[in-house]
Amino acid sequence: MEKLNVTVNGKFMSVDVDPELCLADFLRDRLFLTGTKIGCGKGECGACTVIMDGKAVTSCIIPVMRAEGSVIETIEGVSDGDKLHPIQEEFINKGAIQCGFCTPGMIMSSKALLDRNNDPTADEVKEALGGNICRCTGYVKIEEAVMSAAERMRNGETSK
């Protein structure tokens, strides 16, 4: 067991963890943040994407101790109470969600992009989502949702 100091969705915690765990298992099994999904366990599908210190990472291949001292955002921390983030709303409104299994990872990849660059080009959106596989939507409406959320964020909207 090692001591992990980490901030998850705005809450600081100091916990004992098994260092063999990956970050995704820690989030899902220990914190019950099951919104982070496991689609492959090898960083090849993006379903487990969370934001670590501002960057999108596939939490299934991040050793949990890599999170030491870091700030982690998961899908559960994106909305502000009952107020959804513009990205979440646009995913819903634009039809970017089908089965929903890739959705948390997609939203986290989108948020990592838009937090840094709220006026992305189509290619920047594609690059940001290239590591997130969706088998349902053909990505069309996902990219539309990201663009539309970007516009709202440029107008000053966030959930927080």
Binding site: V78, I92, N93, G95
Partner: peptide
Amino acid sequence: KSIPRNDGFDKATGLGIFTQD
């Protein structure tokens, strides 16, 4: 009408439960 899907909230917030969960 393009009514937003009724499971959108669950799926966009990570609160929707799948077998994996």
